[in-house]
Design a protein around this nucleic acid. Sequence first.
DNA 1: CTGAAAGCGCTTACAG
DNA 2: CTGAAAGCGCTTACAG
Lengths: 341, 341
Amino acid sequence: MVTIGDVARVAGVSRSTASYALSGKRAITPAVRAKVLEAVQELGYTPNAGARALATSHTKVIGLLARFLEDEFAPAMLQYILGVTNEARELGYDTLLVSEEDGVHALERLASSRMVDGFVLLNVAENDDRLGVLRQAAQPGALVGLPERTSGVDVFDLDFVGTGRLMVDHMHELGHRELILVSQPQHVVERGGAYVWRLANAALERAAQLGIDLHAYFGSSTQPSIGEDLNRFLDAHPDATGLLLNNEAAAAALPSVLAERGLHVPADVSVIGRYSDDFARTFSLPFSSIDSAADELGRAAVQQLVARIEGRIPEGARNVVHLISPEILDRGSTAAPRVGS
Amino acid sequence: MVTIGDVARVAGVSRSTASYALSGKRAITPAVRAKVLEAVQELGYTPNAGARALATSHTKVIGLLARFLEDEFAPAMLQYILGVTNEARELGYDTLLVSEEDGVHALERLASSRMVDGFVLLNVAENDDRLGVLRQAAQPGALVGLPERTSGVDVFDLDFVGTGRLMVDHMHELGHRELILVSQPQHVVERGGAYVWRLANAALERAAQLGIDLHAYFGSSTQPSIGEDLNRFLDAHPDATGLLLNNEAAAAALPSVLAERGLHVPADVSVIGRYSDDFARTFSLPFSSIDSAADELGRAAVQQLVARIEGRIPEGARNVVHLISPEILDRGSTAAPRVGS
DNA sequence: CTGAAAGCGCTTACAG
DNA sequence: CTGAAAGCGCTTACAG
């Protein structure tokens, strides 16, 4: 392979001069710099990443730790991943993607071998066992997902409390007084999917304040069971006029379920969901919804992380907890409830 | 950070002895080896990845080059990605995920900086501009997706020709004589999605052999346009009794379209798709389908790549082109056409 | 079976 | 403004 020694020889300068000419870290005579650049062109020189990392203690690589919960909707993770990889690249970093089950072990491995300059953790749980290791690590970390304790890390998430409230407020303003909430499977919650109960609790609390009857359920994440779940919930609450969905599979199954029951949206029932706009368009999820903001969250986490890596954030500065405000994307699936229903 | 020098000092041996004790590349007295391992434990030593890469010319990292086409169904990519990252980890490798637009540039960057030991390319096009660079690179490469020229690379893909034939054969055996094929958007084909026309051409050819009337269309990849497309196709061919879908959005939109037209599956119309089983269950895609085999393909590509990286494949050995045979997963959406229809 | 030393390819104080 | 040299933390022939 071609090294900086080759470049130096061809350019007729020392290796240090070649290095400085390329990094611009000290003044170089224009003519000398031109010769160096010419040699680089001629030889097709690219610095060896391992050697540079060894010399500088910076790898220009970010470790991205994904986390997949059984029964959770995995494909949604891709949008966070792409937000991270694209933003990282724009800032000059590559991304090492780790998907292994044992995230703690992976984190230890990458941190102690100095393979990365920092970490982005996806799908962070309320009491995420990866956080202990992360706080001990020499590299900084940014989270997508809000844990119980946020000290020592920067946190980015959708405001799920605000999301639960917004869903209920929206239905309340239209005049609805009895609602059904379908969350992700209970199993997801048990494994640490805090956003599920955070949204549900906020919705229940707001409903209680407003005098709304809110029936909160967990639903399955796959067909045909989610279809059966939906029918069961609707049977149990024949007077409910609105549905809140925090479950992609429920949003996909609902149109058929409603059609079979002869119900129309929004004339007979109003629906509001929480899922990605991309999925809505690809998978015919025809309901007004609050977007997950996956790309935005992934990018924000990387920006903050890189700022820390590059020392652009003062040592003493407090850690960031940034929650994105929910916004309803109107697809016309909510209206005032039928009079007398 | 703790280095092998620290380990050597604590264990009371030389650095080379410490290194050999850990690598097992030469015989070490059991007692000495025990002292070294103890020191490693005590100090919490992990080799520095950059230093090791510099010394050995092996990074133990695989470069994964994703490729996203406009209008193509991006989330499906995650299943390939996870197949790759999981298999890689099981074989002792980490994965650098690159999603940038300019795949040629990314490939050049990773190859020339020696950041990775080999490459996996996803969604390879008929004449993929990344292949030229890959063939010049010092590192081996494995593809998911079949290009026109396969020399110098190992190739893994679903047999899309076989898939097109199988769809037609299956319908033919049931007695269908007029079919509609809905492919991904034309735009995907133009950007190099060869699998789309490969399946379509094979289906057309087989249909011609069997005397079947096959109407092949491109469909949009999002709602509401794909719903309009489907209605248009069905209007144009009122006597068609079977639908072949190579388009996820079409599979998601079809149930509503058929319901509105008062058509039942499979009594009035038979349907067979090509998409991932995971999506089928999450997104209520209720049709018999041929699975994409994403996980299997990603894993196979990594296995072959690692075998090459580690020199377990003889220099002169021919490159592999491995096509997975399509299999129909029966969801009961096909039957004999209604008599007299 | 073990140690001292060279070398991987960079960057960056240190001298001039 | 430039060069010679040290050092980053490993691995591995070379000697013994």
